[in-house]
Design a protein around this nucleic acid. Sequence first.
DNA 1: TACATACAC
DNA 2: AATGGTGTATGTA
Length: 521
Amino acid sequence: SVRPLISKISCLLIEMEVGVKYTGEKAGMKNVDRERINQIIYELSKDSEYFKLEQRKKEELDSKARSTQERIQELLKDPLKVQEASVQIAAKLQAYEDERTLEETWIHIDMDMFYAQVEIRDEPNLEEKPVAVGSGVVSTANYVARQYGIRSAMPCFIAKKLCEDLIILPGNRQKYCDEASAIREIFREYDPEFESAGLDEAYLCVTKVLEEREENNKEGRLKIAQEIRAKVYDATRLTCSAGIAPNKMLAKIGSEMNKPNGQFYIEFNREEIVDFLSNLSVRKVPFIGYTTEGLLKGIGVNTCRDILNKKLEIFLGFTERCFDFLVSSALGISSAEHPSEKEQKKMISLSKTFKTTKSTCFLENMLMSFSREIAEEMSETCCIAKTVGIIFKNFKFEQFSKELTLKHYINTKEEIFEEASKLLRSFYPLDPVRLVGLRVRNLLHGKEKDKDLNFYLSQQSSQSTCKKPGIKLFRQRCPVCNKEFTQSENWMNTHTQVCNTEVLPKKRKVQSNSIHKYLKR
DNA sequence: TACATACAC
DNA sequence: AATGGTGTATGTA
């Protein structure tokens, strides 16, 4: 009969319309009725501004993919270019192999459906029911809910339509933080320098422990991952999954393979690594997202094998950085080191979505309270900022931002709000907006004992004159942070001293040449 | 430096 | 009726 065929085609068409946002493969999504899911998502989405923007973006991506393909085809016609590229690629491949590490053991731990699992643990009669945690959008859903096509980042109203019985819980941040502390305590035993990725993920380098145990082999590695997972379960009654591999990227890919409550071992051997990756969709490689996947599809690259087969095309059509990342990833080469220094926060931001509004008064109030909260965090973490920026999203979901770098550092709510409201006014007259955000960048971190100084610094702008008679004032700028002083000489000296010796040397000038954390620094 | 985009969780 | 919030890195002008 032609019916199934027609229905397959219409499903495909809708899939193309909806995109792969919620229909891509993910743990627990093997046997879902994709046709029905796509229909529902499409019906609920098709008239929204959000969907229209997504469509426009998709068209842009398609046209970018086409032009990339054309550019590559042109370059391929030039034998000299091809020859030159081949030589460079050969040299690069050799250089990548020199970076390959097979001596370290990395374990990536990923809690299974973290928030949902915590809620179900505390309310066991939810176990068999479809459960999602989130408000507005789904943060995480259990495997029962995933059978209905419910996934993280999906708006709750769509999730509810996909499954009328879905139980949506608002979540409890503090509880998840407490659980995170508990599991991190365990991770610390195995690697005091472990790296967290959000509340529910961590990268551990367990080479040292394995050597101490004289079990630096496959059995020892499997055992240690089992052991960590068992300890996590004992401490929290929560399951997690693990990937065991010679570097961070492979460990991360591995932890997805046997979810939930499973682990996966990647052999510490070049051929087996390349073999393992060859059939894997490029999308499984961390940091290859929707856009990069789309561009690669445009040149017929779907798997890691395709990346290696089409490295000439990728070399010609993508930036060098991108080529390095794609090809070394497809070979299973990535960083097997912790970052050399614990990174300080580079930005503090707050944003909020609300019912679309034109009220500038409302927006000003939002910015005012953001300023207060940001200033609070700045004082808690002892930092000052030089750049202030605001962000908008209009009713068409388009985003705009504007920022300003000052001549000196600031850290009070008044100063932040002053700049923020100037930026806001520069947007007048304003389109109706659905989101506003505020951020500070170019942070300078101080130490605990700088708190007073920062507080003092922040008082300056609002005290341009001293009303008390008899106090000798002077006006001068700090040569380090350019802050103007209208106080006594004593203060100025104290300030300059601290600013020089404590705050400034922390500023780093290390130029990281990596596309992200999986590339060696 | 300013702004936009991609990505992760 | 209805599609989040916080942070990092990078491309481009």
